[in-house]
Amino acid sequence: MLAAYSLLVTASQMVWLTFAPITTQTASALGVSEGSVGILSGINPLLYALLALPLGRWTDRRFNATLCTGALLTVAGAVTRCLWPTSFTGIMTGQLLNAAGQPMILNATTKLAVRYFPPAERTMAVSVASAAQFAGILTASTAGSALFQAGGLRTVLVVYAAVALTAAATVLAALRVRPAAPDGPVSSGSLRWLRGDRVTWQLAGLLFIGMGVFNALATWLDPILNRLGYGQAAGSLITLITVSGMIGAAVLPPVAAARGHRRGVLICATTVTTLVFLTVAFTHNLVLITVALCMEGFVLLAGLPIALEWSEIHAGPDRAGAAAGFLLCAGNLGGAVLVLLLEFLIDEPRLAFGALALIAVPGLLLVARLPAMAAPQPSDLHRPAVTGDLS
């Protein structure tokens, strides 16, 4: 089940970011501007922010139905693009379908771990599923150009549709496996519990910063390095950062969970983020930049599975989907906001890297206020009923 789900997560990310590495070529093939092609990738964070919370609740209530719907929407989006490969409208329709399905897939990360794994193995499951997100980003960024050169835009779309179809079929087959821990009763009521839940908001704030920093770096590293005279290095460097992040996301969370050091790893990640970007802001040596940013990727991307797993422990299994949806919604908003903010600074590399260092400082304040250990809070399903005369 974990392998099938991870493949679906990877496919969803690939469909989302299909056009990011081939923006210029796609604009020429479709007869539109590069800005219009950018919208094809930009609609995902927007729809995620709108749909994450209600779809998180649906994940808690109807896990199988939600995940199946997300898988089918991903396939529908990928296939729609193949049917109209020269139409911007047709491709936009496919992107919208995938964007609608993506929250149904990613919100299931912690819920799947609860349903299919014993407590001792859930951290590993969340880590692997989270690393699959970065695997999809990496695959899209490296395979897109090669596929386009081999057969044009149609080849890119057909190959990605085949991956999406395979992933969806695998998940539908895997869902026939009986869960180790079937769903219990679902928390009643709305999402009002989020309003005063300090820990969940702090974790959401950390993902707002962490995912925002990663998205901003991946988006603007190329023009920043161009201004430093290293224009050809950006693609390889982004690949190295993502690979080191995948390793960190798979390795650090299980170690942190086993030793009770989740907060310690998050403190390390935010501290390293500040120090790394301060260093590269004032030292424009390519070797140093490469080493520092790979170190940053290793600890930064590990924060995603740690925050997701902490949210499941804190909110409880009955609210795992809603909590994950809230955190990922915050992360996507952070990505959109910080990408826009950094756009005004890319002409000055020192200011751009300095801004990323400054953005990480509130993260230190947030993580310092987290409890030392992840602990569950009583949900409305587990609070004892008050009966009798309390006088």
Rank of each mutant, 00 (worst) to 15 (best):
V280C: 05
S391P: 06
V272Q: 03
V158M: 14
L55V: 02
Y5P: 05
L112H: 13
A169H: 12
G229L: 12
Q377E: 15
I267P: 04
V114L: 14
P378N: 02
M295D: 05
A352N: 05
N226T: 06
T10W: 09
T109Q: 08
F277Y: 04
L153V: 10
A143T: 07
G77E: 07
V79D: 09
L46G: 04
A11M: 02
A169L: 13
T270A: 10
V386E: 11
G90R: 04
A320F: 03
G77Q: 15
Y116M: 04
R227E: 07
T69R: 06
N44I: 03
L203P: 00
M1R: 00
R259K: 10
G235Q: 10
A140N: 13
V265W: 05
M124K: 11
P118Y: 11
L237S: 12
I105G: 08
M124I: 14
L206P: 00
P362V: 14
I224Q: 00
G42V: 11
S244C: 11
N107W: 09
L2D: 05
V251S: 14
T123D: 07
D197M: 02
I39T: 09
A385V: 15
S236L: 11
P45E: 01
L46D: 07
G70F: 10
V114G: 11
C68R: 13
L153A: 06
W16F: 14
T10Q: 06
L340F: 14
A372W: 14
L308H: 02
L17T: 01
G388C: 13
M14L: 15
A257E: 10
S190W: 14
Q149L: 15
L304N: 08
L364W: 06
L147D: 00
A218C: 08
K111Y: 07
M104G: 15
G245R: 01
H261Y: 05
T166Q: 10
D318G: 09
D380A: 07
G316W: 00
G152S: 06
